[in-house]
């Protein structure tokens, strides 16, 4: 440092249950930029960290799923506000992590904040497009309403450490699910910093839990975990064998599985364009439809009693 000040190194931590623990295993691994320059040590989570994260996510589920959609939207918007205030930090971390120029990294962060706001707006609108009144041949009101699935394990994309992460995480929690996120293995730092933003945004602890480490090591216990209700395999895209193994493990308790896909719907392991319009596919992937039949009373000679 030119002014003779000692540098203050940051110890990156996991984000589990609203707290910032180190890995239970005590392990860390070196995170470098694409050219191999050391950036920081990140915690290398073990399957026990994954288990703890699932417990935290399950604990948070009732409160988050039960919150009004309006309230969830407000909290997610608050997250975007906090992100906005930290744009420079994230731009720097994204530039380091992905080897982007400063201006490109700034554009990526702006896109991520906009994406977050976009999903925040969806919280109280998704029910209108994914549910509604069904026409039935009987004296009933028949209403379908989308409900969150539960605890969703999210394997964040490997290549897009921040915009990609936001694009897979925000739709999961917008609809009332809670998430256990496995950050990009080689570029986990923006994800771990996102945990700090979430912790200061009124988001209840445990709604989002962020783990860093080797994707394969963490993904398998999550995919076979009996208390995880769905899994997003985006981060397993580069390894088709792993993705298949995870899908098989997930079948055991009938998890919802979101396969790695391009935004345009084409299956494959190639790069996804995270800047494209995401549509509602990721919002609806982790919803379940509850349908209620409500009797309107017998139809008399004069027709409906209504």
């Amino acid at each position: 440092m030119s002014d003779g000040r000692l540098s203050v190194f940051k110890t990156y931590k996991l984000y589990v249950g609203g707290k910032f623990p180190r890995s239970e295993s005590g392990r860390v691994y070196e995170v470098t930029d694409p050219k191999g320059k050391w950036l920081a040590n990140a915690p290398q989570s073990s399957r026990k960290d994954a288990r703890d994260a699932v417990v935290a996510a399950r604990k948070a589920f009732g409160g988050w799923a039960g919150a009004t959609a309006y309230n969830r939207g407000q909290i997610l918007y608050r997250v975007a506000e906090m992100l906005e205030g930290r744009r420079e930090q994230f731009a720097r971390e994204v530039a380091d992590a992905e080897g982007l120029s400063k201006s490109k990294a700034a554009a990526v962060v702006d896109a991520a904040v906009d994406r977050w706001v976009w999903y925040a707006g969806w919280t109280d609108k998704i029910a209108q497009i994914a549910g509604g009144a069904n026409p039935v041949a009987g004296p009933y009101f028949n209403l379908s309403t989308p409900e969150p699935t539960g605890v969703v394990a999210v394997l964040a994309p490997q290549e897009s450490s921040f915009l990609g992460l936001v694009s897979v995480l925000a739709p999961v929690i917008a609809t009332g699910n809670t998430a256990v996120v496995v950050a990009s293995a080689d570029a986990p730092l923006p994800a771990l910093s996102l945990g700090e933003v979430l912790a200061t945004s009124d988001l209840p602890g445990g709604v989002v839990n962020i783990l860093s480490g080797r994707t394969a090591e963490l993904a398998l216990p999550l995919a076979s975990h009996q208390d995880v209700n769905a899994i997003d395999l985006t981060g397993a895209a580069p390894d088709a064998g792993l993705a298949k193994e995870l899908e098989t493990a997930a079948a055991d308790n009938l998890k919802r599985v979101l396969r790695p896909q391009h935004v345009d719907g084409e299956d494959g392991a190639g790069g996804t364009d995270w800047t494209a319009d995401p549509g509602t596919r990721r919002l609806t992937a982790f919803l379940e439809t509850k349908t209620v039949w409500h009797p309107t009373g017998a139809l008399g000679a004069s027709g409906s009693s209504y």
Partner: peptide, 14 residues
């Protein structure tokens, strides 16, 4: 106990 016998983490649903 279920975790030890199956190798998979169990949950409160079980």
């Amino acid at each position: 106990r279920q975790k030890l016998s199956t190798g998979r983490y169990s949950g409160p649903d079980y």
